[in-house]
């Protein structure tokens, strides 16, 4: 029997129905979700067949012939479960726009330059202490069509699994002091008490002299624990 996951604290996640983010309108279920307590399949651990992580996968500035344009940064932190236990050997997948705010994907029509030296995709495994580390450039903000003068704040997309299918998380990391944060309906979809958990801190320890500024961001996924239920659940 697989280990159950804690069910408390999930109000950190945004409501799927968030009118300010227009694309949610036709893409959120209106019927109530059916509660599944301790389902064996969803508590199993997925085995990813994506192949081994290569040594340079964590360094988004070293995947081409030359260095990308932009502000070189280190992004590091720990992956923990909801009990504070570091998760070792976790696959962390990231993707982002380049320094000009353009994704290296054909569908991105934003009129900002592509950078031949930057793809914006990285992967790494957490070490024994649950620490991940990426080297990249700070992504630029970019416009989108959600509302008048809509600009997404700079962000890096993160994808993680934790110990089970049920602890899966896809999220976005934001940068401290970004003036666009209060205007972004995606970021603001999260309740005020939890929003700041998506914002990294500038970190002198992660900063490398004469080379890169450092940002620290810890990620917390659902952890094991049987007896705790959310309010109203029984």
């Amino acid at each position: 029997m697989a280990t159950p996951l804690r069910r408390d604290g999930r109000d950190a996640h945004p409501d799927r129905d968030h009118p300010a983010y227009r694309s949610t309108a036709l893409r959120h279920p209106k019927q109530p979700l059916v509660p599944l307590h301790d389902p064996e399949t969803e508590l199993a651990r997925p085995f990813l067949g994506a192949g081994p992580v290569a040594p340079l996968d964590h360094d988004l500035t070293a995947q081409h012939d030359g260095p990308p344009l932009g502000e070189r940064i280190v992004v590091t932190g720990r992956v923990l479960d909801g009990n504070g236990t570091p998760l070792a050997g976790q696959l962390v997948e990231v993707w982002q726009a380049n320094a000009s705010g353009r994704y290296a994907q054909a569908e991105d029509r934003h009129d900002a330059p592509l950078d031949p030296n930057f793809t914006g995709v990285g992967r790494c495994l957490t070490d024994a202490a649950g620490v991940y580390r990426f080297v990249t450039v700070k992504p630029g903000p970019y416009p989108w069509r959600n509302h008048d003068k809509a600009w997404r704040p700079s962000h890096i997309h993160f994808s993680l699994f934790g110990t089970a299918f049920a602890s899966r998380l896809i999220t976005q990391m934001y940068f401290p002091g970004d003036p666009l944060l209060p205007y972004d309906p995606v970021m603001q979809s999260v309740n005020p008490g939890a929003r700041e958990r998506m914002v990294a801190s500038f970190d002198l320890e992660a900063t490398v002299d004469q080379w890169a500024t450092g940002y620290r961001w810890d990620i917390v996924l659902r952890g094991p624990g049987a007896a705790l239920f959310e309010e109203g659940e029984g």
């Binding site: 804690r6 979809s189 958990r197 998506m198 917390v220």
Partner: peptide, 10 residues
């Protein structure tokens, strides 16, 4: 619990 990291769209 340690406060969970919120989800965001892919």
């Amino acid at each position: 619990g340690q406060a969970l990291t919120p989800a965001q769209t892919v």
